[in-house]
Structure formats: structure tokens, C-alpha cells
Computed example of a mutant assay.
Amino acid sequence: MGDKDSQSLGVIGSVVKPGDSPYTLYSSDNPGAKITQVMLNGDNYNLWANEMVNALQAKRKIGFINGTVEKPSSDGPDYESWVAVNSMVIGWIRSSIDPKVKSSVTFVSEASQLWSSLKQRFSVGNKIRIHELKAQQAQCRQDGQPVIEYYGRLCALWEEFAVYRPLPKCTCDASDEIRKERDDDQVHQFIMGLDDSRFGALCTSLIGMDPLPSIGEVYSKVIREEQRLNASRTREQQQDAVGFVTRQTELVSLDNSIVKNDSSILRNRNAVCSHCGRNGHEKKDCWQLVGFPEWWTERSERNKGGGGSGRGRGCSAQGRGRGFTAAAHATSSNSSFFPEFTQDQWKSLAQMINEKSGSDKLSGPFLEDSDWNR
């Protein structure tokens, strides 16, 4: 159909003019075109019919399926136009039917008859589908999803349910009450499916409102609360990250401090005590003279079943047995350098100092004769 033909039919491109009649066809129209994305598969009649009615209304062709545009007599002036548009509508309907279902649909010469036949065949399962939709709505939960995704799933169920159970068409005051009641039901259903751990307080506040807000207002409040919670969680994660880095820095500083404080071990490892004759410390640091630290005495008593009771500077001869003599190989009498570590902790400390000192390894009586290396 050329431009002149389009203009003669009252068409500008594919835009419907206000004065167009039901017999108007467009240059882009053809019987094989799909005017809706929903295909009739046998189980979705109401959804498909709703989409088809909407598309035909947009094209001003709804009268060809509801019977308001009657077939003129064969000798009437509109007969050929009616035949052309009727064939176009039949083509649109058949193009929107799944091929498996289309094979069972007999060809009908009038669009209204084809429409009635399809309704009679495929609208019988409405009650079952309504039950399924109600069950799916009752089971629909957020379950950790973003609110927008959870709300989208609910909306899809509500829209399909409205196709099977549309609101009554009336102009009295009762229509507003029925619409408000359905809206309230959707509000309750939406609130019940939200994650209580995150939105429990908000849901309690919303339910207590009188009158109940619309579903749009409730959704807006929930979205704002979700944004606030997400922002708060982001700040907490950032604070946790900063705290972790701070703790790691403190640990590194502590390790460096231990190595620095115990550098006397590396400097004095070749020293010889003129009092006890042992290597690893000088006479001024010999524990036999300055006294054994309290932590060493207690650990020795535990290891040897309570033997040896000498403490500090008042150490008796009993404290100078083999175990305490070996203890004198330590490099310092200052117990703050060596808190009461377990055997594994002592070994780990020695390994750390060796690693920090590079090629200079701890050796000699300090490691060989001490109890914590046995």
C-alpha cells in the first residue's frame, strides 16, 4: 500500500487519527504481524485475552470481536472494507496462538466467531489458576532479596490475578470501597513477606496506621528504609576494615618491639659469665646473682612437680639445681622481656627473632640447654 493509499485511508505513518473509522488500515498492518507478546498456549487464556483486547482497542478494531461492528450486506458500501479488516483481525489472532495450539484451531471466517470459540475452549481452567495464584501469593517472601525484586514478583502475581478476578465495573460508591479493600490486601501481603529482621519495626509502624497507606506509599517507605540500612551497613564494613588494618599494624609494631628489646640476645650470645661460666650472658645479668624471675620459678615448679621453691633474690640452694642452672643462660634478669609463655610460644618467639635477624640464628646454650627447647 503506497503513500497515496495510506492518505486515502486517513493514515499518517502508523499513528491513528482521531477521525479514523474501524475500517481504517495502516500501511504497516499485515495479517501475520504479532500485535501482542503474549502467546496463547492453552493455559493462559485470560492473560492472553486481556493483552489482545488492549491491542485491538488501540487499533480501533475491538468491535470486530465483540460484535459491535456487524457484518454489512454483500451489496453494501462497507462490505469490502469490512471483509478486509475482518481478515486482518483473524490473522492477528491466529498469529498470537502457539503453533501447538493453532493446529487444533479450525479456520473461522469471522473474527467474532473465532474469538468466542477460543474463549469457550480455553477459559475453563480459571478456577484452578486462581487457586494457584493465591497459593503463590501466600508463599511469596523476600528471603534476602532486594525489595525491588521481591515487589516485582508480587506485582506479577497481582496483575495476573486481576485478569482472572477483575474489579466490578460500576459507577457507585461501592467501587471505591472494593478497590480500597483490594489495595489494603496487597499492603498486608507485601508487609508480611518482608524480612522481619530488617523491617520488623517499620512493618509494625505501618500496620498501626489508620487508615492504612496505599501500596505505593508503603513501598516508598520500605525502599527508603532499605537505603538507610544499606548505608549503615556500608559504614560498618568500612569501620571493620579500618579496625582490621589498625590491629595488623599494632601486631607488626609489637613484633618489631620484641625484636628490638631482645637485641641483647644477638649482641651477648658470645658473652661468658664470670660467675657461672656459662655463655650467653654477663655476670651482671646472671640470674644466680640477681635472682630468678617469679614466672620462671612457677613454671619450673609445674614442670618438675613442685620441686624448687626459690623466688627472686631470696633463691635458696635448692633453686640451683640443674633446671635453674640451665635457666641462668638467659640474657637478662628482667622478666618483662620474657612473659610466661608456653613451650610452643617460646619456640615461635625464637623462630620469629631468627627470621627478623636474617642470617644470624639463635644458637648456643640459650636454645640448647633451656627447658623450653626440650
Score class of each variant (00 low, 15 high):
residue 61 K to P: 12
residue 61 K to Q: 09
residue 61 K to T: 00
residue 63 G to I: 01
residue 64 F to H: 06
residue 67 G to S: 04
residue 68 T to E: 03
residue 69 V to C: 08
residue 70 E to P: 15
residue 72 P to F: 12
residue 72 P to K: 09
residue 73 S to M: 11
residue 73 S to K: 13
residue 74 S to P: 05
residue 75 D to R: 09
residue 77 P to R: 14
residue 79 Y to H: 10
residue 80 E to G: 12
residue 80 E to L: 15
residue 81 S to E: 14
residue 82 W to R: 07
residue 82 W to N: 06
residue 83 V to S: 10
residue 86 N to H: 05
residue 87 S to H: 14
residue 88 M to F: 12
residue 89 V to S: 08
residue 91 G to I: 04
residue 93 I to V: 12
residue 95 S to L: 04
residue 95 S to P: 01
residue 95 S to N: 04
residue 96 S to F: 00
residue 97 I to M: 06
residue 98 D to A: 06
residue 100 K to A: 07
residue 100 K to E: 13
residue 100 K to Q: 10
residue 101 V to K: 08
residue 102 K to N: 12
residue 103 S to V: 15
residue 104 S to G: 02
residue 107 F to D: 15
residue 107 F to V: 14
residue 108 V to W: 00
residue 110 E to P: 05
residue 111 A to P: 15
residue 111 A to I: 08
residue 117 S to Y: 02
residue 118 L to Y: 14
residue 118 L to T: 03
residue 119 K to R: 07
residue 119 K to Y: 13
residue 119 K to S: 11
residue 121 R to M: 07
residue 121 R to L: 07
residue 122 F to E: 08
residue 124 V to S: 15
residue 125 G to F: 02
residue 125 G to H: 10
residue 126 N to C: 10
residue 127 K to T: 04
residue 129 R to G: 07
residue 129 R to K: 07
residue 131 H to S: 10
residue 133 L to E: 06
residue 136 Q to T: 13
residue 140 C to T: 05
residue 141 R to V: 07
residue 142 Q to K: 02
residue 144 G to P: 05
residue 145 Q to N: 10
residue 146 P to Y: 11
residue 146 P to T: 02
residue 146 P to Q: 00
residue 147 V to D: 00
residue 147 V to P: 10
residue 149 E to G: 04
residue 149 E to A: 03
residue 153 R to T: 06
residue 155 C to W: 03
residue 156 A to C: 06
residue 160 E to Y: 08
residue 161 F to V: 00
residue 161 F to I: 00
residue 162 A to T: 03
residue 163 V to R: 12
residue 164 Y to D: 04
residue 164 Y to R: 10
residue 165 R to S: 11
residue 166 P to F: 15
residue 166 P to C: 02
residue 167 L to V: 07
residue 168 P to G: 01
residue 168 P to D: 08
residue 169 K to C: 04
residue 169 K to N: 03
residue 170 C to M: 05
residue 170 C to L: 04
residue 172 C to L: 03
residue 172 C to Q: 07
residue 173 D to F: 02
residue 174 A to G: 06
residue 174 A to V: 15
residue 174 A to E: 13
residue 175 S to D: 05
residue 176 D to F: 01
residue 176 D to A: 14
residue 176 D to Y: 01
residue 176 D to C: 07
residue 176 D to E: 11
residue 177 E to Y: 00
residue 177 E to M: 09
residue 178 I to C: 00
residue 179 R to N: 12
residue 180 K to I: 06
residue 180 K to F: 09
residue 182 R to G: 04
residue 183 D to H: 04
residue 185 D to G: 09
residue 186 Q to H: 05
residue 186 Q to T: 15
residue 190 F to S: 05
residue 190 F to E: 02
residue 191 I to V: 11
residue 192 M to C: 14
residue 193 G to E: 01
residue 194 L to D: 03
residue 194 L to Q: 05
residue 196 D to E: 15
residue 196 D to F: 15
residue 197 S to Y: 13
residue 198 R to E: 10
residue 199 F to R: 08
residue 200 G to I: 08
residue 201 A to T: 12
